[in-house]
Design a protein around this nucleic acid. Structure first.
Length: 717
DNA sequence: AGAGCCATTGTTTTT
DNA sequence: CAATGGCTCT
């Protein structure tokens, strides 16, 4: 045992040690970028268990993403060799979900309640706006959705919101109707998970006492990203006596725009009396130069809690700022540098290209493609968010729960089965008039012989489809259930008919759903919930799990926001121009501007050894060519830390010299020819443009998709 | 029901 | 520029 404690403390620096060994009570850990905050959290948990003899059962650890939660679990397990099964480790939403599943009755929810994601929520809000006979132009669904979520995040129910004006009153009506519809349908949205959890704890003293009795120690990661309701959530679970440790960095708060409140950090010191403040300021990630640059930049912000990162590491190379002629030049510069780096000390997986907005990725992609450099873009459309998958899930939701109106709306005529607008409007009106669900309204109207013969047939076959599916699949294993639904619903046939690449991908995605269902059951979640309902909840809450190919050596491309928490030996930060970064929508708002600066700080501190900042003097934006000045952030970096490079007269093109991605053969290709690419593998030529070495060839690679490449990177097979 | 046309609009994203 | 959404026309 002695040994194990030594193990836990080994390799921690004094500040980390202080945090890990802090006596029970409250702690506020201000953890700078790369200062080992995850390490402190996991070691702290191990310490609590091993030394303070706190049972894992009495611990609660909250993160923002599933990824962070999983990571924390596995690190604790490898550190303490204890099972984390009994520990409440998860996201605010995930833990709330677990809580509400247990207390569904007290929360006035059906046992099988399902979760509405933001897309579902948007559709429902839009439908409600229509049903209230409001003009979509005067009340854009997006605004109403934003309003609803903002109220919920402040913990306000519709009747608690005080209207400012007529418009505000209408928004409240929309909120009210939305809430009623959700209640009737037995669905709740993301924010509801938190709100209902808080409300339940507030109104049920016995339940509150039970949880406050249980959770002796609470830990919160990325505290600077918490919003009001999450703060309330924490206070309710913590109660008066329990010990709370929060870890955060005010300089890395980049989600103010979606309600995160940095002030929560100050509020914590007031509300949790005697909180001990510990600063982790030693950085283990970046070179001295990179750190100095980042520190200088962030020191321009006002109202910081104050913190100065330092490192024992080497000074390292100066940063490089490249002034590109235009965005293409910028992209080729980056591709050229990457080629050089890969010829030397780095792998592609060591390199990341960061940018402010997703639209910037395309030009860079094209350049990388021409160089034959494989890349991976993070943060696109997630698997469970794809339209075809959501259709399939809607079938499953309706099978599990007929009252699920959003699911009903989604699939009543998908695939098309001859149920038109008129029919649907009649059903909606009936539902509104009788305050019932769409499914019920449809049944009523069918019983009343309300429809034309054609509509009646169509509706009856829909009813039969859902009911027979429900009965037939009741005893099946989950993946069989999914498989049966996919074919019986006609979804498979529907996408089989869709021609071209798109239909094929969608088919593959649908087939993957069967796999996902199978895997889900294999992983054996101990859940009282029926497998189908559990799977649906999983799809709604944990859809972000990125599966990475283990042996893949590809460079990463991602937005600055999604880069938080990651690190790379080499970082390129592209598009450092006024109006782009800082973004033009933030440029005139001092608070927003400071958030942009923090974003830049986050980006810079991702880099371990080399940092390149690039900007284009001329950029094609929204179809127009515009001149922007270099980002003000570049001027905030001390000049002595920088090497400046400016484009030469000629825009650099890919050079086919000796490097690791050298073409293996050069030749001309024709349509239909089988070819080989050293990264993408075997493929078929679909199109050719130009000739000789510069020939652009469109190739379809099995399992990868279509790529446009220049001929010199392809070999004839 | 689905293709095709016009107008609009351009951040960041997790759950 | 291009993607999206609403709308009309077949």
């Amino acid at each position: 045992m002695e040994n194990r404690i030594r193990m836990i403390l080994n390799s921690l620096n004094p500040a980390q040690l202080e945090a890990v060994r802090a006596p029970l009570g409250h702690q506020l850990i201000l953890a700078g970028a790369g200062s080992g905050k995850t390490r402190v959290l996991t070691h702290r948990i191990a310490w609590l268990i091993e030394v303070e003899k706190i049972s894992p059962f009495n611990l609660l650890a909250v993160t923002f993403t599933n990824k962070a939660a999983h990571q924390m679990r596995s690190r604790i397990e490898s550190l303490s060799h204890l099972s984390t099964k009994n520990m409440w480790i998860g996201t605010f939403h995930g833990l709330s979900h677990r809580f509400l599943r247990t207390h569904f009755a007290e929360a006035n929810l059906p046992q099988t309640f399902q979760i509405l994601d933001s897309d579902d929520q948007y559709r429902l809000v839009r439908r409600i706006i229509h049903s209230l006979n409001l003009e979509e132009d005067r009340f854009p669904p997006k605004d109403a959705q934003w309003f609803i979520n903002a109220q919920k995040e402040e913990g306000l129910s519709p009747h608690q919101v005080s209207p400012y004006d007529v418009r505000g009153q209408t928004l409240i009506n929309i909120y009210q109707t939305y809430q009623e519809t959700c209640q009737r349908a037995g669905v709740i949205d993301f924010t509801d998970l938190l709100l209902k959890t808080c409300q339940l704890l507030q109104s049920h003293a016995d339940i509150r006492a039970h949880y406050q009795e249980r959770f002796r120690c609470l830990l919160v990661d990325e505290f600077q990203d918490t919003n009001s309701i999450q703060y309330t959530w924490l206070k309710l679970f913590a109660g008066e006596r329990n010990s709370v440790m929060i870890v955060g960095d005010d300089d890395q708060s980049i989600y103010g725009w979606r309600g995160a409140k940095i002030e929560n950090i100050q509020r914590f010191s007031e509300d949790f009396a005697g909180a001990q403040v510990i600063r982790l300021e030693q950085n283990y990630r970046s070179s001295g130069t990179i750190l100095k640059a980042a520190n200088a930049l962030i020191s321009q912000n006002t109202g910081r809690l104050g913190k100065n990162l330092w490192t024992e590491g080497k000074e390292g190379d100066r940063l490089t700022i490249y002034a590109a002629f235009n965005e293409t030049d910028e992209a080729f510069y980056i591709a050229n540098r990457i080629r050089d780096l890969c010829g030397a000390d780095y792998h592609l997986r060591d390199i990341a290209i960061l940018y402010r907005s997703n639209a910037q990725s395309r030009v860079i992609e094209e350049a990388l493609m021409q160089f034959g450099i494989p890349y991976r873009i993070y943060g696109g459309l997630r698997y469970f968010d794809r339209a075809e998958i959501k259709d399939a899930l809607a079938y499953l939701r309706l099978i599990a729960n007929r009252a699920d109106d959003p699911a009903f709306e989604r699939i009543i005529n998908t695939p098309a089965r001859g149920i038109g607008d008129r029919t649907l409007i009649a059903i909606r009106e009936r539902a509104k008039a009788t305050a019932s669900t769409l499914w019920q309204a449809m049944q009523d109207l069918l019983a009343n012989k309300h429809f034309s013969a054609r509509s009646e047939t169509a509706l009856t076959s829909f009813v039969n489809l859902i009911t027979t599916l429900t009965e037939r699949t009741a005893g099946m294993p989950l993946h069989k259930q999914v498989e049966d639904m996919l074919s019986a619903s006609g979804l498979i046939d529907h996408y089989r008919k869709e021609k071209g690449e798109k239909g094929l991908t969608k088919l593959e995605n649908l087939e993957e759903l069967v796999n996902a269902a199978y895997q889900f059951t294999q992983e054996g979640v101990q859940d009282e919930l029926p497998p189908l309902a559990a799977f649906l909840a999983y799809a709604a809450l944990e859809s972000s799990d990125e599966k990475t190919e283990p042996n893949e050596d590809a460079l990463s491309m991602l937005t600055l926001h999604s880069a938080k928490g990651l690190e790379f030996p080499v970082v390129f930060l592209a598009g450092c121009e006024e109006e782009l970064f800082p973004h033009y929508l933030s440029i005139n708002d001092p608070k927003a501007l400071e958030e942009e600066r923090r974003l830049c700080y986050v980006g810079m501190t991702r880099a371990m050894r080399k940092l390149f900042l690039t900007y284009a003097e001329l950029r094609r934006l929204h179809g127009k060519e515009v001149y922007h000045r270099p980002s003000r952030f570049l001027h905030e970096i001390p000049p002595e830390l920088i090497d400046k490079v400016r484009f030469r007269t000629k825009v650099s093109r890919p050079v086919t010299s000796s490097h690791s991605y050298q073409p293996q053969a050069v030749g001309k290709f024709h349509i239909g020819q089988e070819v080989y690419h050293r990264v993408f593998g075997e493929g078929t030529v679909l199109e050719c443009e130009g000739d000789g070495e510069d020939m652009k060839v469109t190739v379809r690679f099995a399992g990868i998709g279509t790529k446009i490449l220049i001929a010199s990177y392809l070999t004839a097979k």
